[in-house]
């Protein structure tokens, strides 16, 4: 059997990948993908702990995290489309004013 710590290490590395991507990327779509990566790292540790302690609550929590991720992706991508329409760019450094 694979011990729980391996799953936790994997989830930590995934979360770290998301953090690095969020900080170093400029393209707003890739920044969004980094956020998804972070959410998935957290989900993995939820499921690992749920399997460890025979508690289904962890899996239900993952379900709700996925619902929130879906809502966040929908609204965020709509914002990306609106930003692209007004500014013609996806570079976050150039989106530094709330008003045109």
């Amino acid at each position: 059997m694979v011990p729980l710590s391996n799953y936790l290490a994997l989830s930590g590395i995934l979360f770290g990948c998301g953090v690095i991507g969020f900080l170093i990327k400029r393209n707003i779509i890739t920044i969004f993908m980094s956020i998804e990566l972070m959410l998935n790292g957290v989900n993995l540790s939820f499921v690992a702990f749920a399997a460890q302690w025979h508690a289904l609550r962890g899996q239900i929590f993952v379900f709700f995290v996925m619902v929130v991720a879906a809502a966040e992706a929908t609204v965020g991508l709509a914002i990306i489309i609106a930003v692209y329409r007004t500014r013609e760019t996806l570079n976050v450094d150039r989106v530094n004013l709330l008003k045109l």
Partner: peptide, 21 residues
């Protein structure tokens, strides 16, 4: 959804911009 949005925006132009800060 992500792939649809990527295809909606003009990637050729943003490809030429710097990708990493």
């Amino acid at each position: 959804l992500f792939l649809f949005v990527i295809m909606l925006v003009n990637l050729e132009r943003s490809q030429r911009e710097e990708q990493f800060n």
